[in-house]
Simulated scan of single mutants.
Amino acid sequence: MSDTSARDTLRDQARDNARDRDNAMSVAAISSERIEPDDNGWTRRLVLFLRVMAIISIVKGLYHWAQVTGFIGGEEEAFENQSMAWQTATIYFAVIELVAAVGLWLATPWGAVVWLTTVVSMAVIELMFPGIYGGSLTVVAFEAVMLAAYLALAWMAARERPP
């Protein structure tokens, strides 16, 4: 009987040790013992920038939809009284700005690509086709500054992550 009781005691100790080890691992998994270094500062700044650009894209998209639906402008600036080129560009930006806003808010790679498409499209329309929106160099400069800021933040965020 002493052999059986010794075996039972060893089995109970092994079970207790395994339970303690499992409890320790589960507590370590959910605890905040892992120290996250503050090395992702540029990534946080990039995500904040993307969210700000998402809000700006929402405003721009809603502005274009307001032009399409007639919420802004008078009788002479009505959508149906504009040229076909203006109507096409306005509908294009009304849709693509809102799609870009969703992707930017989620900080997805496709959101940045769609936003880049809107930036380049607006710059091309303003510079190459000034008859559509008036050829504002202020709009082009703003888009260029935002693009440069995005590229700089994306580059710095990529540098802080190991390959």
Rank of each mutant, 00 (worst) to 15 (best):
M1P: 08
M1H: 09
M1L: 07
S2K: 12
D3N: 11
S5W: 06
S5N: 09
A6N: 10
A6R: 12
D8P: 00
L10R: 11
A14W: 01
R15C: 02
D16T: 13
D16N: 14
D16C: 05
A18F: 11
R19N: 12
R19Q: 13
D22A: 15
D22L: 14
N23W: 04
N23H: 10
M25Y: 04
M25P: 00
V27W: 04
A29H: 13
A29R: 15
I30F: 08
S31I: 07
S32A: 12
E33W: 06
I35H: 10
D38C: 00
D38T: 09
D38H: 06
R45W: 09
R45Y: 03
L46M: 10
V47W: 01
V47A: 02
L48F: 13
R51L: 04
V52N: 04
M53S: 13
A54S: 14
A54G: 13
I56V: 13
S57K: 01
I58A: 10
V59L: 15
K60A: 15
G61W: 02
Y63N: 12
A66R: 04
A66C: 05
A66I: 03
Q67E: 14
V68N: 01
G70E: 03
G70I: 11
I72D: 03
G73Q: 07
E75A: 14
E76N: 14
E76D: 13
E77Y: 08
E77S: 12
F79G: 06
E80Q: 09
N81R: 15
N81F: 09
Q82P: 01
W86P: 00
W86N: 08
Q87N: 13
T88C: 06
T88P: 00
T90D: 10
I91T: 07
Y92Q: 03
Y92N: 07
L98C: 13
V99F: 06
A100G: 15
A100I: 08
A100Q: 07
A101G: 10
G103Q: 09
G103R: 07
W105K: 04
W105P: 02
A107H: 10
W110T: 06
G111R: 01
V114T: 06
V114C: 04
T117C: 09
T118I: 08
V120M: 12
V120A: 15
S121M: 04
S121F: 01
M122K: 00
A123C: 15
A123R: 02
I125K: 00
P130I: 11
G131H: 07
I132R: 03
Y133E: 02
Y133I: 02
Y133H: 10
G135V: 02
S136I: 06
S136K: 12
S136A: 12
T138M: 12
A141H: 04
A141R: 07
E143P: 00
E143D: 14
M146S: 12
A148R: 05
A148K: 09
A149Q: 04
L153D: 02
L153Q: 04
W155Q: 11
M156W: 08
R159S: 05
R159K: 15
R159L: 09
R161S: 10
P162E: 14
P163S: 14
